[in-house]
Structure formats: structure tokens, C-alpha cells
Simulated assay, not measured.
Amino acid sequence: MEIDYINGLKTDEIFGMSKYQSEIHRRLNNVKLNRIEYPNISKVPGVNKLVECFAYPFIVKKKIVRDNIKHITRQDLAFLLELVDLKKTIVTCHDIIPIAYYNTRNPIWKLNAKGLRKAEKIITVSEFSKKDISKYIKYPEDQIEIIPPAVDHNLYYPNRNRAALKKYRIEETEKVILYVGAEEPRKNIQLLINSFSKLKNKIPQVKLLKVGTPNYLGVREKLLEQIESLNLQKDIIFTGYVSERELAEIYNAVDLFVFPSLYEGFGIPPLEAMACGTPVITSNTSSLPEVVGDAAIVVDPYDADKLVEEMYQLLTDDGLKKEMIRKGLKRSKMFSWDESARKTLRVYKEL
């Protein structure tokens, strides 16, 4: 079986969507991928997006094979279905955040919505996302297949060691809270920083480590202004992008993982933290309760004081910490990339 794998930007960086794509498809035996991508031509924000919108449709049209199943691997490439005649098409739609959360009027996203409606099948990552796709896109639920992300347990497993923190000059005696992800407004990092500031009044020896790139225009500058106004310049550390292996080491080095997002289609980082034996606090919104079950502390992501309270409890109550670690390890093992690959192959065969 050969699949036209319409993947967008060619990149070696691993993040939520690219991780999902690579982990599933390296487990699909006897499936040949005709990768259709466009080159990373610029580090200047927006340039690659212009290539995606105006040149990529021509690349796709030229490189597709008529009888192949077409798999568009990201929802923000669904506009291709409006611009290129594609038959036997599956779209992986992780979420529809621009429509469901930001209420965007972006014309490209109007095209994406129309393109999604033309797909013969949609793969999504959670029951929550399935309901949103049905609600906002008006796409039939019986044509939406849920195939959740998972954790590579050969990489993310308990190997508790603080060595990864040395490069960030964090002392052995300091507690460390970790956040992994983007910096766009729905990620709610401003509230996390405010809560962290209040937590320092209770636990002075604590640091906040933020892993990930500044992917949203102007937000990093606002975060740095907020940090300076709270006099936390020495206590909040931005690592930038890290490799998968280093990320696993960081999960294993920290005391607590906090993920206060307002809206997620799924949310892989809480699962990865659990798999490494790190207790998790996350939001009680969108798909996150579906992801973590009873294996994490879930809080109202608008309640900064409640977040402070829960962080303090997990950092000071060893019994609670051990219980959440135990539950987290068990929960993370429920998500398997092998199972996700089997389900993906079944969708290909059905089409």
C-alpha cells in the first residue's frame, strides 16, 4: 500500500503534530509513504507560511499519485482540498482551535473548514475534538475516527536524575516546576507565572522551567515584562527547543509538571511527564480530563490561588506525591503508539 503523505513543512523538529505523524508511521509495516513536503526556506516568521499557501498546492498537485490514498496530516493543510482535486482523502485534525477557541475570521481557515468537509474520513485525537469538529465544521460524527497520541515508553520512563538541570544552574536543594509547550495565549502561561510568584512566598527555593520555542508573535516579550514586574528574572528559565532525549531527562529531573492550558485537542506533555514518574497538575477544561483521568490533579485554569494551593500540596506532601506518581505511571501505559498505528492502518484499508 502506498500513501500520498501530505505533510507540509519539512522539518527535523519534534513537536505535538510532527511527533504524532512520525511515531505512527514508523510503525506501519508494508506501507510506503510518498512524502509530499515543502522545504524550510526561511527562519523569518511568516515566510514559510506564504510558501505553504501559494506554492505548496502546486507541489502537491505535481507529486500526488492518482490511485494512492491521500493523507493530509494536519488540519491547517485542509485548504488543499479546495485548491487541488484530491480523491480518497483522509485529514488528521488534531483540533480546530482557530475556529472553536479564537473565533477566527482568517480566510485560510475558512478554506480549511471547507476542505475538512470534503475529506472522506477525518482522524482526530480525542472525544472532545471529535465533538468540536462535528459541532463547528458540521462534519458527520460517524466519519470521524478517534486515534489518540501516546508515549514512547522506550524513551519516556522513570530514570530519576537531576543531572539535566545543571546546565540551567539549578541547585540540588531547589524544587523545580516544569511547563512544556507553546506560548500562545490559550496556553495560560501568564496565570502560571502569577501563581508561581505566589508560591515563592511559601517555598522560596523553587524554580520554574519553561521548555519550548516562542512561537506566537509578541507573547515572549509580554511574558518577560510580567516576569520582570514580579522580580522573577532569576527564578523562571526559558530553555528553548530541546531534543526528545533531553526532554525525557528534564521530565525525570523535575519535581512537578504543570500544564494549565485553557484549550487542548489532546495534550501529550502531561502523559510524557506521567510516564517519567513526575506528578502532574493540569486544567479541568477541553480534552485534558479525558487524557489524564484520575492520575493528575485537575484545576480551574482561571483560578490562580487554587493552582498555588495544589502546587504547594504536591511539593510538600510526600504521600500525595507518591500516589499521583503511581497513578500517572499506570495511566500513561494505557496509551500505545503501536495501537494507534494499527487503528491508522485500519482506516487506510477501509478507504
Rank of each mutant, 00 (worst) to 15 (best):
D338H: 06
P279I: 01
L271D: 06
L329D: 04
E141M: 10
G212Y: 10
P107A: 11
G277V: 05
A163W: 11
K19W: 12
K198I: 01
K135R: 15
A55T: 07
R331Y: 09
I137E: 06
P57E: 09
G181A: 09
F335E: 09
C93S: 14
P270I: 11
R105F: 04
L307R: 08
K306I: 12
I144M: 06
T285K: 15
L111A: 07
E184G: 10
N7W: 00
T73D: 05
Y251L: 00
L116E: 08
Q143G: 03
L307G: 01
V258A: 07
V44D: 03
L345N: 11
K131F: 06
I64W: 00
Q226N: 08
F54W: 07
F58P: 01
A273Q: 00
L329Y: 01
F79A: 05
T316D: 11
T124V: 06
I123D: 06
K131Q: 15
E23R: 12
R35K: 13
G293P: 12
I203E: 08
H25C: 12
P279T: 07
S129E: 02
K121T: 13
A275P: 02
P214A: 14
V31L: 02
L77V: 01
D338F: 03
H71F: 10
F266C: 02
G293L: 02
V125I: 14
K322H: 12
E171H: 12
N48V: 08
Y101L: 01
M17R: 09
E82T: 15
A150P: 12
G212R: 10
N106Y: 03
K135N: 12
L178I: 01
I123A: 01
V291P: 08
F79P: 06
L315W: 04
V291W: 08
F54A: 09
V299Y: 13
N201H: 05
S287C: 10
I268H: 11
I90C: 00
K114C: 01
K343P: 07
